[in-house]
Amino acid sequence: MTFNNICRHNGARISGIAKTDRDTQTHRALPRTLPDICFELQAKIDAFLSEQTDDNVLRKVQSQVRVSMDVTREALRRYGPDHLSLSYNGGKDCLVLLVLILACLPACASQPTTPNSDVAATNHGAHPTIEPPVSPNMAAPGRPLQAIYIVSPHPFAEVEDFVERSAEQYHLDLKRYSLPMRPALEAYLEDRPAVKAIFLGTRRTDPHGEFLSHFDPTDEGWPQIMRVHPVIDWHYVEIWAFIRHLQIPFCDLYNQGFTSLGGVTDTRPNPALAVGGDAPKFRPAYELKDDDEERLGRD
């Protein structure tokens, strides 16, 4: 099965989520290895970057992908996968980041890691050049990508289900913590002391994201680790253009009008997507256009 077929079986697509054994008894997907997934994602993104398009949003997404993959490769060169982790909660932004990281792993597997020196000097827009595509005969990715899932105090069942299934699909080495963010990070670094940097799907329009750069150490009073923000400058519409153009399975709550996922007590469908009167229905998240309206459904 190719990566394209993850998103559809016999041409059918279910709420943005791939059909699995839970959904059908007539189709059973063969298990796919991590190297298979990484090489296919790499080829898929290479093909996307080679597309000639008149769509202004897709052209911007192509530019964003190039920058983000530069940042990701730089982090992989500096630290190596054994010392990197991903903050993953099944949301759209970290989902895009996950796909980009996995697409970079084949090249990383074929290169030595650069000693970690003066990491903070890579801030403020300095990016390495993009490397040429890697062919499948190069070294395959090794261990699964490490990841941390900080669970909301009142998680959506749909989010829990999507995190579980996508972590299995992408072979994530995922550890989950039902703690506030700081003690969760402290506990994770105690469990995984080799981790020196964490990929985050933070974007500039997120709370506390305005002044972040691609590489930022944690603030004083927090566990000391490097935060890596490859998608910091992406806009909301670009995130969704990437997900939909590359047909990446996503959490079904986004089809129900949720645009930013928290917990059941502080998150509701975005009122900017409401259609109707007293009992409104909601358009899907990818129909929202304005960055400033993304968090209108969050308390």
Rank of each mutant, 00 (worst) to 15 (best):
W234H: 08
P180C: 00
G142Q: 04
E131S: 13
P217N: 04
I6M: 05
R32Q: 07
R59H: 11
P269T: 01
Q256I: 11
H171I: 05
G277T: 09
C108K: 13
Q64F: 15
Y177F: 09
R28A: 14
N5V: 08
P284N: 00
L145S: 05
A107F: 06
G209D: 00
T2S: 14
I198V: 10
A75E: 09
C108Y: 14
S15D: 13
R227N: 05
F162D: 01
S152E: 11
A167G: 08
V231T: 05
A120L: 08
E168M: 14
L261C: 01
F3H: 15
F48W: 03
H245G: 09
F48Q: 04
V134G: 08
I14Q: 11
S178E: 11
M226R: 08
T53M: 05
K19T: 15
V65Q: 08
G277F: 03
Y254P: 09
Q64I: 06
T113G: 13
S166E: 07
C104D: 02
F242E: 01
P133T: 08
S110N: 06
H154K: 14
V71T: 07
D233R: 06
H9Q: 15
M181P: 11
I45D: 03
V163T: 05
Q169P: 10
D206E: 06
V159Q: 07
K92V: 09
V237H: 09
A147V: 00
L189M: 04
V163G: 01
N89G: 03
N123P: 12
R298D: 00
G125M: 04
F242S: 07
D291F: 00
A184E: 01
M138C: 14
K44E: 02
A139G: 05
S117P: 12
R268Q: 07
D36E: 14
P217L: 03
R204F: 12
N123Q: 13
Q64D: 10
Y88N: 06
A47Q: 11
N89Y: 02
P249M: 00
M1I: 12
A12K: 15
H245N: 06
V231R: 02
R28F: 10
C7Q: 13
P249K: 00
D36C: 12
W234P: 08
A75Y: 03
P193W: 02
D233C: 07
E131H: 13
L49W: 02
E168C: 13
S213D: 10
L200P: 08
F199H: 05
Q146A: 15
N10S: 12
A272R: 12
E131Q: 12
P193R: 08
V71Q: 02
S87C: 10
R176F: 03
N123I: 13
T24M: 07
N56Q: 15
K196T: 11
P280Q: 03
W240H: 02
A107V: 10
I248N: 04
C7M: 13
N137R: 15
